[in-house]
Structure formats: structure tokens, C-alpha cells
Design a protein around this nucleic acid. Structure first.
Lengths: 277, 277
DNA sequence: ATGCGATTAGAATATTCATTCCATTTATGT
DNA sequence: ACATAAATGGAATGAATATTCTAATCGCAT
């Protein structure tokens, strides 16, 4: 019971186990070998399960945790669980909390620190993007766009920059684009000519812009093939869409760099152009 | 209770939740949104924890699981746990296989390859950004913006998305913003009210949009403090600018993801807000 | 061999947890 | 406006779980 185990990472724990392996008694050595070989079982199982799989009585498992300086099995299990959560996409909640805490410090308030924060934020959102977008979806999306006569773009509020960017690139590539921006009237009027021979790319993140949520179902009902870029399967532009790109983003709208969706629409546009040859 | 839930994958479950979301009652919808946004919490937490974090009573969580066809929370949780183990298991063999498949797709022009190409482009442009932007410039920029009564944004053509994004964030933070977009007349008229007490953020990349090149010197001549974001010191918006951010980008306009300038303007806006407190 | 300390296994226990039940509230149709 | 059904929240319940305790066993030096 000589090791402070409070804030221990999984790798540190592995090292600690390996280090004192030979100093442990027979049963405890057996358990040490098992937990190093089956960290997932330890992370997700109960004491009884781990005990059975490693062939020892439950109490031995608890003694093992004690020998490592933990208050009990549950405490040790927490460390093994960090390994699991580290494997999946970094949680935005944690990152947001980190941002908030850094904002408090004087150093974090300096513009240079703010920039490096957004840069690293953008980096990880790009990693997440390439992991979460599948080739099948991209192929389907470009197929829809390739068949479209006119391409309608719907992205208002915070998503407007993405829509304008996609509009710019598509027009550069010679596509006919209608950007639904609501200038000079309602977006309903702008989208009135959309038919089943056209296509719609809708972009919307929380909180979903009301006009987007209203117009999207109308166009879908008219048979316009739709591609949606959003942050949740529950967003109003998911139902009826032929293709849905779900992109994780920051919960706070003002903190979104839009890096991931910008890259995605770019890839869609260029991929469309290359496939057309 | 009409869905066989025994051998269900995480993605299938997500789809099922999204599909019957609107058919659920209020509380259950609230839970649906939470579990889609916080799958890790569901995978690792207890009923009480999930209930507290999602702001519902524990019994509602169990009812939610029942509504999805599971025998109880524990049964549903198993599906969420598969997501965690799937994320960590692919060690070397799977990762190698993934790399191989990516290489293969690079050979073709498949959209997925295009995306990964843009992602890596964006990654490196972010690295370059954090290296090339210095704290002194950022400080100077935020100082100018802090003193400004109205902030005029000038970014046309391919830079328009950056300008709209900056406009969105600044307005969210309560700043007075004039976006020079030329709708309903000339940008000259829109910028007519700009004085020495205001500020101008100009964004322009090759080939420099003619209107930008024309308007920028006029505003500078009128004494409006200017911040420029561009790709060359020879660009038309460098001379007369108080601060210049030079950002390397792709030579071909259609291939720019705008990732770096998006991050930069975001950092400027948030940095301004934090410094103002 | 024998006594002593360390180690172990299994039962006992106390706690945590998921689930169910029921009274109350809220929505819905007549 | 009323009656009926659905939904909800909170307490009660019973199961599952981690942990502790104790008697038995093992290893080891004398």
C-alpha cells in the first residue's frame, strides 16, 4: 500500500504492475499476468467475472488491487477504463472543460494561446472526420451530385460559411449552384424551382437554424435528393436525406472552427469533379 | 418492445434510436438525445449517473431501454460497450490493414482518397499557421478590434466564407459588425460610414478579388485601421495595413480548404472577447 | 518435526445498483 | 368540461456486487 494511485494513467499502472510483479506472492502474480493480458476484461467485468476468468477467488482480486495501492477493485478498474475511452474519439465535453479552465488562467487568455488551442482543436476534429466518414457515404453523395442539374445549398447561421465555400468551389468547377441565403426575399422563393432532377446539400449544426429545419422537409417531400451534413442523427435535416454525414463538433456555436465540414464539402466537390472525367 | 435487440451493433442501435426518436414521448426523446451525444457515459456509467447527467429520474432511463426493446438498462449498456472495445482492439493487424486499404484507394480517384488528401493538407496548413503567426501580431490585431466601434469585414470571392464566419462569431460575442458583401448595391456604399474609430478586417487570396483590391486602399486612406489576412506580402491588401497575417495556402483557389484562415479569425474573435473582460 | 508469520479461500456482510410499483401529473379524445 | 389513457417521478424492493472477516493452509526457519 505504498503507491499513490489517485491519478494514475493506464500505462503507468502497467509499468507499476510489471515492476513489482516478482515481489508479489504466487496468487497475486497470477492475477498480475491476467490483468496485463486482458485489460478489457478488467475494465468491463465484475470482480466475480475477472476472478473466474483468471481462475482465482474474488477476494484475491481485491487483495491484488490493495497490493497496488488502490482502495479496492473499483478504484483500480477506473484506470483500466481510461484506456477504453482513450481509444474512441476524444470527448468534446472534456475538451470544452479544458478550454474553460484554460480561459481562467492568465496565460490562456493571451491571443497566441487562444490560437494554439483552436489549432489543436481543429487538428483533432480532422482526425475524427477521417475516421467517421466512410467511403460508401462519400460515393453515394458524389453520385447524387453528379446526376444533379442544379445543386441547391442550404446552410444558414453558423453553417453559412460552409455553404458559401461549397458554392464557390462548385461554381469554379462549372456546376450550376443555387445558394439559398434568403437575400431579397424568402428562401422558399429561392428554392421554388428545385425538382427531383436537382440535388440539395444541407448543412446545419446545433442550434439548428429554424429556416433550415423548415425548408428541408419541404424540399425532401418534393423529391429533391438530399445530402445532409450535421452533428446529430436527431437533427431536423436527417430524416429524408439520401446521405447523412454526422460530424462531431463543439457544443458551443461560437467555438466552432468549421474545419471539419469545410474539408468535407471540399472533398465532395473535388471528388465529384474527378469522378466525372 | 417490438425490436429484437439481442445481437445489435452500436451503429444499428444509433439508427434505431434516430428512427423512432419522434415517436417517443418527451422524456424519452430527451434521453435519446443524451445517449447519442454521450455514448461513453452510457457505456461506463450506472443508471443513476446517466440519469443525473441527462437530467431525468433513473426510472426513465430504464423505461427508455425498454422502449428500445431491451430487457433493461444493463442489456442496452452492453451494446454501448461494444463501441469501446471496438475502438481499442484493432492494434497492429487492423491498423495495418486499414493503411493498406487507404493506399489502395489513393491509386484510384475515389472520393474517400480525396477526403484523406484534403485532411492531411489541412493538418499541415494548421501546423504552418501556428508557426507563422506570432503573438505580437495577434496582440496588435485584438487591440485594434477592441478599440473599434464597428468592425468592417471585407472578404469576397473565395475568401467570403472566412468573412462570414468571422462576422458570425463576432456578432455572437456582441460586437457590431458590417459585412461587406455587396448585396443590394456596391460595397462602396456599404463601407461609406467607416471612420478612423472603426476597424477593418480584410481577407484576400490569389487571385485577389478586384473589388477587394479597389476598396481596401480607399478605406485605409480614410484612416480606418486595417488588419489583413492574405497569402503574400505583395497582395493589394498589405500596404497600409496595421497588421498583416501572411498565410501560405494552395495556389489553386478551388483546392483551398480555408482551414488556416478560419482558425485564425476564430482565434482573433475569441481572443478579443477574452481580453476584453 | 514444530512453531510462526504470511497467504489464501470461502463465507458473511454491507453497500450499491437496476428494476418495479404506484400515486400523481399530463396529455388526449369525447 | 369531463373522462380516459399515457406518461412521469420518486420511493420501495430485491438482486447483484465489492469488500471484509475468519479459519485454514502454506512456506520457512529453527
Amino acid at each position: 500500500m505504498n503507491k499513490a494511485s489517485g491519478a494514475m494513467s493506464y500505462d503507468e499502472l502497467r509499468g507499476a504492475i510489471a515492476q513489482r510483479h516478482r515481489a508479489l506472492s504466487g496468487r497475486l502474480q497470477q492475477i498480475a499476468e491476467f490483468v496485463l493480458d486482458h485489460p478489457t476484461d478488467v475494465a468491463l467485468g465484475t470482480v466475480a467475472e475477472v476472478a473466474q476468468r483468471s481462475g482465482v477467488p474474488p477476494s484475491a482480486i481485491v487483495r491484488f488491487a490493495h497490493a497496488l495501492g488502490f482502495g479496492g477493485f473499483t478504484e483500480m478498474q477506473q484506470v483500466f477504463r481510461t484506456r477504453l475511452v482513450a481509444g474512441v474519439a476524444p470527448s468534446y465535453k472534456a475538451r470544452l472543460a479544458r478550454m474553460k479552465s484554460e480561459e481562467k488562467s492568465v496565460l490562456g487568455r493571451q491571443p497566441a494561446a487562444v490560437l494554439s488551442r483552436f489549432v489543436s482543436e481543429a487538428q483533432s476534429s480532422l482526425v475524427t472526420l477521417s475516421q467517421s466518414v466512410h467511403a460508401r457515404e462519400l460515393d453515394a453523395a458524389t453520385a447524387i451530385l453528379a446526376k444533379a442539374r442544379d445543386i441547391y445549398l442550404l446552410g444558414l447561421g453558423g453553417s453559412f460559411p460552409v455553404a458559401t465555400h461549397l458554392a464557390y468551389v462548385l461554381r469554379k468547377l462549372g456546376r450550376r449552384v443555387v445558394l439559398l441565403d434568403g437575400t431579397g426575399g424568402s428562401i422558399h422563393e429561392q428554392s421554388h424551382a428545385a425538382t427531383v432532377d436537382d440535388a440539395l446539400v444541407a448543412i446545419s449544426f446545433r442550434n439548428y437554424y429554424p429556416d433550415t429545419a423548415r425548408l428541408f422537409p419541404e424540399l425532401v417531400a418534393r423529391g429533391v435528393p438530399a445530402i445532409s451534413i450535421t452533428d446529430s442523427l436527431l437533427s431536423p435535416i436527417v430524416e429524408g436525406a439520401r446521405v447523412v454525414f454526422e460530424i462531431q463538433d463543439m457544443p458551443e456555436p461560437a467555438l466552432r472552427t468549421l474545419v471539419a465540414p469545410m474539408c468535407l464539402v471540399q472533398a465532395m466537390a473535388i471528388g465529384l469533379d474527378l469522378a466525372a472525367d
